[in-house]
């Protein structure tokens, strides 16, 4: 899993360069291969300060290398929006007003709908959290904290 994305600014190098160890992989053929791999690999979402600014740029007006960076950033921005939308959707699904006064159908013969729906909802939330951890984990925070860590005092014997 990739812990953090690189900086994405025109002129600083595209993510494909960074991920390919400096080799410029820009070109139409690489993109359909690299992006799904990154997507499945769970690369985290981009910092909003970078993402939104970059998303306004037009790749067609940029050099090929930076165009790749912009597409990459847009991809992460879209994924961020997608995950945010999914969280909001799950939040909205909590208001199941459609069977507010119903006592059936019962699950296993004793769980009324207002209860089994919310048990299922809770399990779905667990899956959502798994998705967030997999796709949007802010691993860079731990690296940064590790670099500047406040010294831990030695334990007494």
């Amino acid at each position: 899993m990739i812990d953090q994305p690189p900086l994405l600014h025109p002129g600083l190098g595209s993510p494909r360069e960074v991920r390919s160890g400096g080799r410029n992989l820009s070109g139409g053929l690489c993109q359909p291969i690299v992006l799904p791999i990154l997507f499945l690999g769970g690369a985290p979402i981009i910092h909003p300060a970078d993402g939104w600014r970059q998303a306004r740029l037009r790749p067609s007006r940029l050099p090929l290398r930076d165009a790749g960076a912009v597409r990459y950033t847009r991809y992460f921005t879209m994924r961020r929006a997608g995950l945010t939308g999914l969280v909001l959707l799950v939040y909205a699904a909590h208001q199941d007003v459609w069977w507010w006064r119903e006592t059936g159908p019962m699950l296993f013969g004793f769980l009324p709908p207002g209860l089994w729906y919310h048990v299922g909802y809770t399990l779905a939330v667990s899956a959502l959290m798994g998705l967030l951890v997999w796709r949007a984990w802010p691993g860079w925070l731990e690296e940064e904290a590790g670099r500047h860590a406040h010294p831990v005092e030695e334990r007494d014997a």
């Binding site: 969280v87 799950v90 939040y91 909590h94 199941d96 009324p112 207002g114 209860l115 919310h118 048990v119 909802y121 809770t122 939330v125 667990s126 959502l128 959290m129 967030l132």
Partner: peptide
């Protein structure tokens, strides 16, 4: 009644981990 689970448990299951 069963409203208790939806009131506190399922909403907490989303909001607290988030």
């Amino acid at each position: 009644g069963i409203v208790t689970y939806g009131l506190m448990a399922s909403s907490s299951a989303l909001v607290i981990p988030l």
